[in-house]
Design a protein around this nucleic acid. Structure first.
Lengths: 339, 339
DNA sequence: CTGAAAGCGCTTACAG
DNA sequence: CTGAAAGCGCTTACAG
């Protein structure tokens, strides 16, 4: 029932190779022949069989994004969605198929992906400082790019956020408003222990910022839930009543902090300012709208996919490494320090 | 370089058909032979070539979800993410690959998808009352299921939300608290005009609820942004000062409404209650936490994928039609009517 | 500019 | 329980 190259060739009175040339827009086809074949394709409603193309050519024209959900709180869902659609749109633009893998990636799964010719390349997330997947893919010479970075990135392509810079921006903004005592809720301890980039780099940036701006800044490593952030904030304020500003790294943390502040009769931002670091664009869904150091997760997804496709096509000169600088977005949760 | 069936067969001293049998766990292989082959596979690190399997068998073992982003506000991103991960996990569980298509689906795109053998089945979203895609797929006998439903669903498989029931629940809850004047922000006018399910069914449910509970309930069709909801709420309250409760159908609307109420010095929930209808589980990220009629978008994604796979395998007896009843989740944004 | 042949790595259908 | 043959629908490499 389905129409094949064979059918088209027969009806058009040419060889299948010629039809193939037309379909793939190769040069060296007489204009007249081209027209004739094109018309036959139209009449018959011919559509190339993707799987056959893939087997014969050895290329799948597809990329896969491994988006681990083992730890669902790891990325804000909203940010995740924007990222995924960024990847999807970039892939579509380059005429690549896009597959999504969730769940944890075992070494067996990775072997299947590479050797089974499921895709031409892979996007990796949740990169740890030392990452076995990176070594594996490198050895197998399978094209991949990272959203994140390792300790040693020689020869690797990645795009990552400049967490250090983000923290600098947050503290620069708050100190410029006169805040000297700033509470900080950061990523959970396990993240840091696992060597996950956001936790590691954010803490480094935090230390550098505290030093540079010479502020008092007690902090808590905190799960990304409203509840945990609520209690962490209460604990911080109890021990450090002079705090006039808070920095958080997740929207749930911001909500928990605001809730705690309100209960303590501290108005935001009059009595206490609050800044979200790398919370995506969710800040405007918080009341009051959250001043944030933010970036476009969609844009990053788009870029990482394009980077991978360049790598697959080998049109990139060498490894590409991009560090995105998030920017301060002023909303209504920050104000000059009281007094 | 890559290991093929041929290589395994040769080394194990059997035919490739036998190796194929072992790989596919078919019956009728001598236990001894099986062992021998399995060991050789292990030694050689053989992994089946997915594209070859697909071409030869005529099955791709993959499904595609068409998630249109042409109208990015159409679904809340958070809900979308949960839905997608639900689909992804269900597909993985059944050992199916999962591809995501975004962007608008042209008739050409749909033809390619079906005839090009890209996937074994398709999940459709944003179903309109009359949907050309449904007709097309039906005629081409391509397996698909819908997240949503048409006007006439004879012979079709779908899973959808019971919007009518959701509205009933919202009004039942508010009237039980003594509210008689209830403002309502619903989906934008264009949605209704296009015949999109949520808009159409919600409005039907709204009318039924107003009648049943005999309340005054002015409403506005409203874009899903904080800003629009803010102004719509102000307009509603200006014209109807007796309103003591609001119903919204999106988290941005809830945020806009709360902001407007606060500016008018109406405390939530003491002076004005607010209920979110079908806002996913985002209600807890709002201050105060939003009482909602909600459901698990993840669960729906999971179910719709399973439904499709049953359809592909033809293990389902006939068309399956599921209407999910969302449930009231009490949080802190509703209270008895003032006085 | 065009085509006949071989082959991509599997599965299907049949035979024994 | 096992295997030899044909074929899935294309592309590659070569020849003319």
């Amino acid at each position: 029932m389905p129409i094949t190259l064979q059918d088209v060739a027969q009806k058009a009175g040419v060889s299948i190779k010629t039809v193939s040339r037309v379909v793939n827009e190769e040069k060296n086809v007489a204009e007249e022949t081209r027209h004739q074949v094109l018309q036959t394709i139209q009449e018959l409603g011919y559509v190339p069989h993707v799987q056959a193309q893939r087997l014969a050519s050895g290329k799948t024209r597809s990329i896969v994004l491994h988006f681990p959900l083992s730890d669902p709180g790891l990325f804000s869902n909203l940010i995740g969605m924007d990222f995924i659609t960024g990847v999807a749109l970039a892939a579509a633009k380059e005429d690549y198929y896009f597959s999504l893998m969730t769940g944890s990636l075992t070494s067996g799964g990775l072997i299947k992906l590479c050797r089974g010719a499921q895709a031409d390349g892979l996007i990796l997330m949740q990169i740890t400082v030392q990452d076995w997947r990176v070594e594996f893919l490198r050895e197998n010479k399978f094209p991949f790019v990272m959203h994140g970075r390792c300790a040693n990135n020689d020869g690797l392509s990645f795009i990552d956020l400049d967490f250090e810079h983000a923290m600098m921006e947050a503290y620069a903004h708050l100190t410029s408003l006169g805040h000297q005592h700033i509470g900080f809720l950061t990523y959970p301890e396990e993240w840091r222990v696992k060597g996950l980039g956001p936790a590691v780099h954010t803490l480094q940036g935090f230390r550098a910022a505290v030093k540079k701006f010479n502020v008092t800044s007690p902090y808590r490593e905190c799960q990304q839930t409203v509840e945990r952030a609520y209690w962490a904030t209460r604990s911080l304020l109890k021990e450090n009543p002079r705090i006039t500003a808070m920095v958080t790294v997740h929207n749930t943390q911001a909500v928990g902090a605001i809730t705690a502040l309100q209960e303590l009769n501290r108005k935001v931002p009059e009595d206490c300012s609050i800044v979200g670091v790398l919370v995506g664009n969710e800040g405007e869904l918080i009341i009051p709208p959250l001043t944030s150091i933010e970036y476009s997760s969609h844009e990053i997804g788009h870029q990482v996919a394009e980077m991978l496709i360049r790598k697959i096509k080998e049109t990139s000169p060498g490894p590409e490494q991009i560090l995105v600088r998030p920017e301060l977005k002023l909303r209504r949760s920050t104000a000059p320090a009281p007094r």
